[in-house]
């Protein structure tokens, strides 16, 4: 793992998809009027014959992708997470998931990473996709993980929902990072508290763990990029080693990673106190930039630290989260 502030890169997904498509002639790329924003202008330049403008018509795009998949193509459909999951939900269910077709639905701008208000903030996309049979749900944490994950994602026999940060994407993992569809990754060892995080909240979880460690709390950090199928075995093993658990997701606390972990803990009868960091059953709002939204909706590093402190019943004020100093082109979590 690299150190904060993280350097960032542009279009890691777009570049990885182009590289993958060189070897995989069956990959077809579809867009719903958000080509540059979903990094696939790169694909369009390289493989114009395999690039399809569906226009602002997500329902048609998803059903067409299903039909293309029936004929042996591997369609990747792209738009923002809100439009990828809300509008074509019935099409995802009936044209893709029920027939178990290998369509990859790629939704950018998760949670409150968009300052564009509730219409642009995908806060329940994981919940919606997780509830659909056959669907694999992936929320990657950084640029290295995107690239590492893409070949595995291409090989999933059924549909996949992939959730990606838009724009400057941090590099948290080293070059050699291995992505597994089946195994969650324990990044930091610890035995008092577990922080289980996905996507954009991983950086905050790592940061919070460092602050807590400095204050004498032993924190275990687990990255769960694959929210479904969940690596329940690692969750059970993690939870059984600690006395309290926090989940962290840039998503509603209903139906996403926190819910999946809660279900696993309850079914295993492990009975550890659990707190879920995420949007607390509320819509957010528009803002000039995203960081104030992470702060306002308690999705910051300090929120994880405070939550841990209270959960473990530590006396006195919680330690302060490290100040986030990120220069232009760098990334530090809120």
């Amino acid at each position: 793992m690299l150190k904060q502030p993280y350097r960032t890169v542009l279009k890691p997904y777009g570049r990885a998809l182009v590289d993958l498509a060189r070897d995989r002639a069956e990959i077809i790329c579809l867009t719903a009027d958000l080509t540059r924003q979903t990094e696939i202008d790169l694909f369009q330049e390289q493989f114009p014959e395999r690039f399809i403008h569906a226009g602002m018509a997500e329902a048609n795009m998803v059903s067409m992708a299903g039909a293309l998949a029936r004929r042996g193509f591997l369609p990747f459909v792209h738009t923002f997470g809100v439009f990828a999951t809300r509008r074509p939900l019935d099409q995802i269910v009936n044209s893709v998931a029920y027939p178990n077709l290998p369509v990859r639905i790629v939704g950018f701008m998760p949670g409150v990473s968009s300052p564009g208000g509730p219409s642009h903030q995908a806060i329940e996309d994981v919940a919606l996709m997780r509830a659909i049979p056959n669907m694999t749900v992936i929320d990657v944490a950084d640029a290295t993980q995107v690239r590492a994950a893409l070949p595995s994602i291409a090989d999933v026999p059924g549909p996949v929902y992939l959730r990606l940060k838009r724009g400057e994407v941090p590099v948290i993992f080293d070059e050699g990072h291995e992505f597994s569809l089946t195994t969650a990754q324990t990044l930091i060892e610890g035995d008092e508290l577990a922080v289980i995080a996905s996507g954009m909240m991983l950086a905050s979880a790592i940061s919070a763990a460092a602050a807590l460690a400095a204050a004498g709390v032993s924190v275990r950090v687990v990255n769960v990029p694959v929210i479904k199928p969940l690596d329940a075995e690692t969750i059970r093993r993690t939870v059984s080693r600690v006395s309290a658990v926090i989940t962290a997701e840039n998503h509603s606390v209903i139906g996403g990673l926190g819910s999946a972990v809660a279900e696993t803990i309850a079914e295993a009868g492990l009975g550890r106190p659990l707190r879920r960091i995420g949007l607390r059953d509320t819509f957010a709002e528009g803002a000039r930039t995203a960081p104030p939204l992470f702060r306002k909706y308690r999705l910051g590093t300090q929120d994880i630290v405070d939550c841990a402190w209270e959960l473990l019943g530590r006396p006195g004020p919680p330690p302060p989260a490290p100040a986030t100093v990120a220069a232009e082109g760098e990334y530090s979590p809120v």
Partner: peptide, 20 residues
Amino acid sequence: CGSLGMGLSGGAGLALADRL
């Protein structure tokens, strides 16, 4: 399609596949 209104999109996808 049991859920109505999706078939023409499927047809367009199949026609596109035939062409490709």
